[in-house]
Design a protein around this nucleic acid. Sequence first.
DNA 1: AGGATGATATTA
DNA 2: AATATCATCCTA
Length: 209
Amino acid sequence: MNSNRLSASFYESQSTLQLAQSLLGCELVHITADGLTSGIIVETEAYLRDDPASHTYNRRTPRVEPMYGPPGHAYVYHIYGMYQCFNVVSNESGIGEAVLIRALQPQSGIDLMYDRLHLLRQKNISKPAPNIPINKLCNGPGKLVIALDISKAENNGQSLMSETLYIQHNPGFVHDGIQTDTRIGITKAADLPYRFYLKNNAFVSKISR
DNA sequence: AGGATGATATTA
DNA sequence: AATATCATCCTA
């Protein structure tokens, strides 16, 4: 059943920039006590060791230690006080690089994803939760983490070859190819073409041009 | 365009 | 100890 799961060699055998592209079309799966949720990865960004926008640029602090660990593991970090982002650690141990997962096309456990996002919104605002179109369910790194119930507390540093959090090939998923673009939400090295997403895919967080 | 919100890094 | 900086999301 899990013969499609990405193996250690998949994560080890390619550069971060390559991995950021080859993860597109693969399916990220998280199994919790509530059930299984998953989505096709449709948008990624690469963060490299000599990259001013990377958390590892000229530093090796406790927060980013997972990025220096072995590839095929999770790096989850807090951002803007209220959100978290999920990364796939890449390159070999001792080299701090990773791929940020920016958007998913929901696949399994969609009702559960809606429950999680609605729950969070109702806690933050007093108004009734607005209807969320499915293409806006996981169209951003903070949102997909909520939808799949990934957290720094539970998943930071966790192996992606584990039983509950992994990425698998989805041979049935076809797409129109890969678009390269600049990364989103950064000020340093903003011109580097390290963002990748599936062409004509409605689940991408932001399209340009 | 601006606000929510707090962990993390940097500076001192 | 104090300050600056966010790999975001939402409402308007």
